[in-house]
Computed example of a mutant assay.
Amino acid sequence: MENDELHRRFEALTTAHLTDGCIRARLQVRCAPAGTRSAVPGGRVAGRVLPARHVGSVDVFLEALSSAEAGDVLVVDNGGRLDESCVGDLVAIEAATAGAAGIVIWGLHRDSADLRALGLPVFSLGSIPTGPLSLTARPADALDSARVGPWEVTPADLVFGDDDGVVFVPAAEAGDVFRLAESIRDTERRQADLIRGGTTLREQVRFAEFLRARAENPALTFREHLRAVGGAIEE
Rank of each mutant, 00 (worst) to 15 (best):
L82S: 10
L90H: 09
V91F: 02
V91D: 05
I93K: 03
E94Q: 12
A96W: 14
T97L: 11
G99P: 05
A100G: 06
A100R: 01
I103M: 04
V104W: 04
I105W: 03
W106I: 11
G107K: 00
G107C: 07
S112N: 07
A113L: 13
A113W: 10
L115N: 03
A117G: 03
L120K: 00
L120Y: 06
V122H: 01
V122I: 09
S127C: 12
P129C: 05
P129I: 09
T130G: 09
G131W: 09
P132E: 09
L133E: 12
L133A: 11
T136F: 11
T136W: 08
R138W: 12
R138N: 11
P139N: 05
D141P: 06
A142L: 05
L143V: 13
D144M: 08
S145V: 13
S145P: 04
A146M: 09
G149Y: 05
P150G: 13
V159T: 07
G161K: 01
G161Y: 05
G161T: 08
G165K: 01
V167L: 01
V167W: 00
V167A: 01
V167R: 00
V169W: 03
P170K: 01
A171L: 11
A174P: 02
D176S: 12
D176N: 07
F178P: 06
L180F: 08
S183D: 15
I184A: 04
I184S: 02
D186N: 04
D186S: 11
R190Q: 13
R190Y: 10
Q191M: 14
A192D: 10
D193T: 11
L194P: 02
L194Q: 12
R196E: 15
T200S: 15
L201E: 15
L201I: 15
E203Y: 06
Q204W: 09
V205H: 00
R206G: 14
R206P: 11
A208P: 07
A208M: 11
E209W: 05
L211W: 03
L211V: 14
R212S: 15
A213V: 13
A213R: 09
R214D: 10
N217T: 15
P218Y: 05
T221P: 02
R223P: 05
H225Q: 04
H225A: 06
L226T: 11
